[in-house]
Nucleic acid binder design. Structure first.
Lengths: 216, 216, 216, 216
DNA sequence: TATGAATGAGGCTTCATTCAT
DNA sequence: AATGAATGAAGCCTCATTCAT
């Protein structure tokens, strides 16, 4: 049993190390851009040998993929946390979802780049499947939350994903602006601007009141 | 004079070839992702030798940069075309700007990636300056158009760039969705969705009417 | 401990390989001229892959530099060996210094070329510093030896470096002759000639006796 | 005849252009190192097209070779000038020969590098032959001058080339010192040092007087 | 299991030389 | 004769991945 114990300890450490690799890799990717980060750099950051990385991940692409899954899992965890709360909290789901993404624009941007990078490759299809599964689940959660708002008349009655992706789009764009050296130069009042953006996001899919006469 | 003529013909052909390189490069970048496209592939696509590329561009990065400039120039040209029209047309500026970008999402996405890629490099600063100059000019055009709409009460009275970048953000996000294999899967009714998005874009920064019952 | 031992063994082998690379590279440089020797040729000569070279040296220039340092270290080692001997030996220092250089004219010529090549580059400044340090130390050793000869009245009382560099110049020229296919053709009696040169070198900076009636 | 005249004018211009190419090339080689100078740079410096260079010289190597020949011809011209003078002047031959070389150390160094570069190539053997021919002639001239000094008892009675090459070696070394950034650092008093070197050169092969107490 | 030395395909870039005009 | 655009061999260097210990 001592042996068994030892073995399980080892397995635990192995997991921990894997986590460490992913954490450091993500840091480096965000800081330097994933193309400038070599596997060796990651190994050094973790304080292990390059070869060890390959005991955990078959390719560098797998690291990318695992990071994406982790990210999506963080989201899922957040959803779970909120669902444990009462109904009001559930109404916050969509809002929190997006503020979650918007709060770490660099990280978000990283995952957007990875998405594109991996889209054109054959890499481990099971992992891709996993990723998509989690995502779909997360979207379902969102959809539920949105549905509630449609039902109570807050949101316009269109397919739920209209609302989801519209918000997604705005967040995505906001992050991109946040990221662009050039566009940043033109924004004197970040606070104000991003708050403005937030307002828009909130109103975005609202049901239009009858007397509204705006259109171009 | 025949000699001069000949010379100018040659120069013209040289230009044409440069254009050809840029066009083919852009195609390849969009199709395969710029990292998967080698200089040699570009040369082959154009039907010239690898070395010839370097008669036109000092580095691969310069190709990226020149493409970005070209893209921004296309925008500028569009603006100029619209300005020649009457006032109504001018009001369309902002709208056209964004539909321009949204109409070729792959291309747009390419340039977004290039932006990020070149942001972390020292490459030809004069070209970068040129790029920024054209962009600033384009933004100015937009600002004018937006200003008019603020003045006539259509748009909320906030700094013009609030409106510009908010719209920019939405477009950017829309493009990203368009681009993502994963998210696409969930959208059955593209037509409907993107039209929904368009509506949002149009209303986005509108002045709120008093009886609006906004809530989050 | 076995692990430690193993590690040190590996480290030792790594060093050995580095030495091997330098040795082979030097041979090739001398035989073919450094410009005709590619990194791949060196790798092939050692029997390793191209990439391995870059585990040891960051650039080809670094190989040049390391060779130069090695050469200067050989000299330093020679000095140390001589200093362990008695006073007479120490007086031989200068002589040995120059015969050392003259004995492998091809090698010497290589290093002279490298000197020129590296003079116009920014490469690894620390290595350059190291090189200069060792050289300065070697020159100091020589200076001591020369000083002794000035003090005992053998050499003319001018700054020590006059003597050092005068001798250096003669050796350098001798090497060049040795190296030149053209000039070699005119020398039937190498033995005699180089001995003549040696004599000159020895008398070169001698104090002139009064009754000397030399003039040009 | 007008046609003939024209043709001869053209031929003349052609020659002039060739000269211009050689002059500019030499300047660039000395300033930047021959490896950093492309054929295009030379063409630009002359203000002609790259292709034109190849109407005059078959390869870049030929330019090197022609420059070397030119250099040796300058020497020959100098000898001729001196020979027209009286006997005293002729005695100065050797001295002038070396001061000629020493006066433009950068140029001298260039030709030394070229010598090495061309030694390992098959390039135009006729030109190499020409070069060697002129050199041999120049050496003959020197030999005569030296012989006179041996006969009058000034110089030690050894084969004339002993003296020639000994002096050549010293000059060569002096030039190298002049050229080395490192060694220069140690020479505070250039004037004094090079004058010292000159003295040595003058005495170098002098007949030793009996009472000289040479030792090593 | 952990290691890190070794690998080599593959990318970018240079430049002497060619050749059609 | 003059041109300069085009060429492509060749060089340097990077880095994901392998594998023997």
């Amino acid at each position: 049993m001592s042996d068994l114990h030892k073995a399980s300890l080892k397995a635990q450490e192995f997991r921990k190390r894997e986590e460490e690799i992913l954490v450091r890799a993500q840091e480096l990717f965000i800081a330097n851009g994933e193309d400038k980060v070599t596997v060796e750099m990651i190994a050094d950051a973790v304080g292990i040998g390059k070869g060890t990385i390959y005991k955990h991940f078959e390719t560098k692409d797998e690291i990318y993929l695992r990071l994406m899954i982790r990210y999506e899992e963080e989201l899922a965890a957040m959803f779970d946390r909120l669902k444990e709360g009462d109904t009001k909290d559930r109404a916050r789901l969509a809002k929190d979802y997006f503020s979650f993404r918007m709060k770490q624009p660099d990280k978000y941007a990283l995952f957007h780049r990875l998405e594109h990078k991996l889209t054109n490759r054959t890499s481990s299809p099971e992992l891709v499947a996993t990723l998509h599964e989690i995502r779909a689940k997360n979207l379902d959660q969102l959809a539920e939350s949105i549905k509630a708002k449609i039902d109570d008349g807050t949101l316009e009655d269109v397919p739920t994903y209209y609302h989801i992706f519209a918000a997604w789009a705005l967040v995505h764009g906001a992050v991109a602006i946040h990221h662009s050296k050039f566009y940043q130069e033109f924004i004197d009042d970040k606070e104000g601007f991003f708050s403005f953006l937030g307002d828009i996001g909130i109103r975005m899919g609202n049901k239009r009141t009858k007397n509204k006469s705006n259109n171009e």
